[in-house]
């Protein structure tokens, strides 16, 4: 999409396998919600298809969230150390809004050096797919 000037300035995340439910959605940009990215909430907008999500950065909402990425997923993303990875949580907006949830079981993991990304299912019996956002 060379005509889209915004995609030149904003980093593009690349999901090699798409996301579960959206196998053809490969390239996404992150646009902060609110004044700047300090709020920890972003619109994650697809450049290949009419697909978008709201995602939350755990450090702002869940400082204790420290997902353990298995070796297989780390390999796929080319992650050599945990310092190379950031995670983002998919938000499901609800009506009423205070019932909106975040997915803690399957974070989006991004290799910050290469911008390769994938939604990774953690090996956990306790992390929920739907956790209230206001309660986290």
């Amino acid at each position: 999409m060379s005509g889209d000037s915004r995609s030149d300035d904003v980093p593009v995340l690349h999901f090699d396998e798409g996301l579960p439910g959206f196998p053809d959605a490969h390239r996404f940009t992150l646009v902060p919600i609110g004044a700047d990215s300090d709020g920890g909430l972003f619109r994650m907008m697809c450049l290949d298809a009419d697909v978008q999500f709201v995602v939350a950065a755990p450090p702002v909402f869940l400082p204790d969230y420290a997902p353990e990425i298995d070796d297989d997923a780390a390999d796929r993303l080319g992650l050599a150390t945990t310092d190379d990875a950031i995670t983002l949580l998919v938000v499901t907006l609800a009506d009423p809004l205070d019932q909106s949830t975040v997915n803690l079981l399957a974070p989006i993991v991004v290799n910050v050096r290469t911008r390769e990304a994938a939604q990774v299912v953690l090996r956990s019996d306790v992390l929920p797919i739907r956790q209230l956002l206001v309660a986290v």
Partner: peptide
Amino acid sequence: LQAANRSAAGEPSSEALDWLSKLGTKAN
């Protein structure tokens, strides 16, 4: 996970964006 992603996908309303931006400010 597929079902959760499908229900999460979509353009947020202006009301939702407003709520989220307040939530972000508060959390931060």
